[in-house]
């Protein structure tokens, strides 16, 4: 993603459109009947059907709901700890080994544990998404606070602000732009985690709908859900990006890379 806004160029649509036409033609010409792939036209029909029977909306609500609840829990936790660690360097140093040992555990590896504790359903998904969201929130908000202009802390001391006043009047506003970037990245991760858990085992959401369509040898429906998951992910990212730009202008767009 380049920092300079690219002008919209219609030629970029040629490749995806061409691939779609090619796929459609390939099915027509060969007359192929497949249990694993379907032509775009049938995928579209399956998508409309899924929309009509409500499964698309239900799945989206379940997936997005789980992702958002999970990210709310995880991000607030990570943000809180991250801010404290960013403000008190000695705590950060003391917790270094503990954090760096737990952080690399892939969140998905914990889902059998969450399954034991919570069983199938929402709570298990909340837990895993929350665990996965804690780390980027913690690391990025800690970095955001640590990079707050040191002179601002001198001003806080000069004004004899207490801990809470210092946190809410000086540190948070100064670190806010980078925290919002952290939020956007974490929300993206939360959606990925939610879909991954649903595909791995959970009985709700878009991922599960895809797996069921695959198991019932309905490739058109499976691909329709795949495309839809892509659209949801793309829209979520675009919305967060637009909100961030609206609030902070384009100062930050260069930091969007991660």
């Amino acid at each position: 993603m380049s920092a300079a806004p690219r002008k919209f160029d219609g030629r970029g649509l040629l490749v995806p459109a061409g691939l779609l036409v090619l796929a459609e033609l390939a099915f027509w010409v060969t007359g192929m009947q497949s249990d694993s792939l379907a032509p775009p036209s049938r995928v579209l029909v399956a998508g409309v059907n899924a929309l009509a029977d409500g499964s698309l909306i239900l799945g989206t609500a379940q997936t997005l709901g789980s992702a958002l609840v999970g990210v709310t829990i995880g991000f607030s936790l990570g943000l809180g700890v991250g801010i404290v660690l960013g403000m008190f360097r000695f705590l950060d140093r003391l917790l270094e080994v503990a954090i760096e040992t737990i952080r690399p555990v892939p969140a998905i590896a914990l889902f059998p544990i969450a399954l034991l504790v919570f069983g199938f359903g929402y709570r298990m998904e909340f837990a895993i998404v929350a665990f996965a969201s804690v780390w980027p929130a913690l690391i990025l908000s800690r970095a955001a606070v640590a990079s707050v202009e040191p002179r601002l802390f001198e001003i806080a001391r000069l004004l004899q602000l207490g801990f809470f006043a210092r946190t809410f009047k000086i540190v948070l506003p100064a670190a806010l732009p980078r925290i919002v970037v952290a939020l956007r990245l974490t929300v993206g991760l939360a959606l990925i985690m939610a879909v991954t858990i649903e595909i791995s085992s959970n009985t709700i959401g878009l991922g599960n709908a895809m797996m069921q369509a695959q198991a019932s040898l309905d490739p058109a429906r499976m691909l329709a859900f795949l495309v839809w998951i892509g659209i949801v992910g793309w829209t979520l990212n675009a919305l967060m990006l637009a909100a961030q730009k609206r609030i902070f202008g384009s100062i930050l767009s260069g930091e969007a890379q991660l």
Binding site: M1, R6, D9, R11, G12, L13, L14, V15, P16, S36, G188, L191, I192, V195, T196, I199, S200, G207, M210, M211, A213, Q214, M222, L223, L226, I229, G230, G233, W234, L236, N237
Partner: peptide, 21 residues
């Protein structure tokens, strides 16, 4: 110009969603 937008479209897709396919 030709592949950039295509890439941008695929990028936010969770990689695990490709598993059923």
């Amino acid at each position: 110009t030709y592949f950039g937008p295509f890439l941008e479209l695929i990028r936010p897709l969770p990689a695990s969603a490709i598993i059923p396919v």
